[in-house]
């Protein structure tokens, strides 16, 4: 039983690390502000969720695990809202989205 729980935790943490890496590559390689925000907004949210669930599975049933789940729910609501606010501010500020064929910013 202990092996199954450890394996689940490791799988969740490795998945979170993978999505963190993809979000970082997107942030570094994509051509303009909105596409970079697209990469980090989605990738980081899922990665944080997976990492926290991995920690909670490793912790078992306890007060700390409940707090970790609360952080996961909080991040799952807060991260998309922050991304939405920043992208909205960019549109209002007058940033133009990149279209194919233009120079990379």
């Amino acid at each position: 039983m202990g092996y199954i729980i450890a394996a689940l935790s490791v799988v969740c943490l490795l998945g979170g690390l993978f999505f963190f890496a993809t979000a970082t590559i997107g942030l570094l390689r994509f051509p303009d502000f909105f596409t970079r925000l697209h990469a980090t907004g989605k990738g980081d949210t899922l990665a944080v969720f997976l990492c926290l669930i991995g920690f909670a599975i490793h912790e078992g049933l306890s007060l700390t695990a409940m707090k970790i789940v609360v952080i996961a729910v909080f991040m799952f609501l807060a991260q998309p809202t922050a991304t939405h606010a920043i992208s909205r501010a960019g549109i209002r500020h007058g940033l133009k989205p990149w279209v194919k064929g233009e120079e990379r910013q």
Binding site: L77, A78, H84, R88
Partner: peptide, 13 residues
């Protein structure tokens, strides 16, 4: 004037 940010803030506070 954005309903998403206002609602989330009202829930979180």
């Amino acid at each position: 004037d954005d309903i998403i940010i206002k609602t989330i803030a009202r829930i979180f506070v």
